[in-house]
């Protein structure tokens, strides 16, 4: 299966990050690896864009950050959802599901 260029799907990266952080606080590297592993490397995510999205969502108040210690005892910046972020995740999930269902429905009729 060919890799999908995520740039095509606006806002999807935000949704993926929110979903990832829904399991608890993570640093940027962990978010990147988790997405890569979960999608079996089928989504091509430029990590620079991922960090930009993290910082942008922090500015919007969806995420909060805090410096903490990583698994190997290094200083790392941990992100976690705020209540506004959780609300965003719910809303975006609903939209995305509807969207995907609609597109899929169109593709089915042939």
């Amino acid at each position: 299966m060919a890799a999908v260029d995520l740039d095509l799907l606006q806002g999807t990266l935000d949704l993926l990050i929110l979903k990832t952080l829904n399991w608890g606080p993570r640093h940027g590297y962990a978010v990147a690896s988790w997405i890569r592993e979960t999608t079996d490397q089928r989504l091509q995510i430029e990590e620079g864009a991922l960090y930009t999205a993290l910082h942008r969502m922090e500015k919007r108040g969806w995420l909060e950050s805090e410096w903490g210690l990583s698994e190997n005892n290094r200083r790392a910046k941990y992100y976690q959802l705020t209540s506004a972020g959780r609300k965003q995740l719910r809303a975006k999930t609903a939209v995305w599901t509807d969207y995907a269902a609609a597109v899929f429905k169109v593709l089915q009729t042939s």
Binding site: E47, G48, A49, Y51, H55, R56, E58
Partner: peptide, 23 residues
Amino acid sequence: RRFGDVQRTRERLATIDRSRLGR
């Protein structure tokens, strides 16, 4: 390669953070 343009990202992140801190 996985990261993309490091320098540009660095500047962009700093800009976002500065405006967030100001607010």
